[in-house]
Simulated scan of single mutants.
Amino acid sequence: MADDPPKPTLAPEHTSEDVAIRHAMHDLAWLARTFVANAMRVTAGAGDPYRLAQQAFELGQAIQDAPSGTLVGHINDAIADAVSDGRREPGDFDDIEDATDDIEQAILRIVAARMLHQTVQVTRRENDLSTAICRLEDIREKNRREFEAEMAALRAKQNIKPSIPRKRRKPSVRVQPSRSVPQPNPIDEEAELAACKNTSEFIRKRQEQLRRARGED
């Protein structure tokens, strides 16, 4: 046996026959558990597919080798209990875990239905999966709103203002003022032109005024 099962706990008042049956059922349940777990992992793309045949053979051999006083119902119960042991009982967990358990069950049923090409069952279980996912999202949203309401009440009781994230100021860009070119003082061009002897002399004087205004020699 590749996987060693945990030892069963037995009371001292049990007879030798009871002890033999309990041990046989315990080993049988462990074989069923390891076989189903490996089959599920293989279905998901993991596990050890080369051990499935050996595990199935060991499980069948354990059923045949069960003590003579073992009822068939005991064998079936042991296998069923072992296979369903991974599931939690209702009422043992909160709403989120309850919805998560429904999601897990729907996924397992979808995989089983696909393996047997049961199209109708696949469609039904996919609807169950969608319903469970929506219920989980609703529960989380409800918990979020309740948490925010509790925090707001606590802040109001302690007179604490909610922190508002400060907006980051954009770095200011300093614009250098453009240097304007000095302009010559306004003059009466017609009067200056009349004072000059000709147009070339007027142009020369005008250029000199511009150079002096710019600080040129």
Results as ranks from 00 to 15, higher is better:
40 M>G: 15
41 R>M: 12
41 R>W: 09
41 R>K: 13
42 V>E: 10
42 V>I: 06
44 A>Y: 02
45 G>A: 02
46 A>G: 05
46 A>T: 02
48 D>P: 06
50 Y>D: 12
50 Y>R: 09
50 Y>Q: 06
53 A>S: 15
54 Q>Y: 00
54 Q>G: 03
56 A>P: 03
56 A>Q: 10
56 A>T: 06
57 F>K: 14
57 F>M: 13
59 L>A: 02
59 L>C: 05
60 G>H: 00
61 Q>V: 12
62 A>H: 05
62 A>V: 04
62 A>M: 08
65 D>M: 01
65 D>T: 01
65 D>W: 00
65 D>R: 06
67 P>H: 05
68 S>Y: 00
75 I>C: 09
75 I>K: 04
76 N>L: 15
76 N>V: 15
77 D>Y: 10
79 I>Y: 06
80 A>E: 13
81 D>H: 00
82 A>P: 12
82 A>V: 10
82 A>N: 10
86 G>Y: 02
86 G>A: 07
87 R>N: 13
87 R>G: 13
88 R>V: 07
89 E>I: 01
89 E>W: 03
91 G>V: 14
91 G>F: 11
91 G>K: 13
92 D>T: 14
94 D>K: 03
95 D>W: 02
95 D>M: 10
95 D>V: 12
96 I>D: 04
96 I>H: 03
99 A>Q: 13
100 T>R: 11
103 I>V: 06
104 E>D: 11
108 L>M: 01
111 V>W: 15
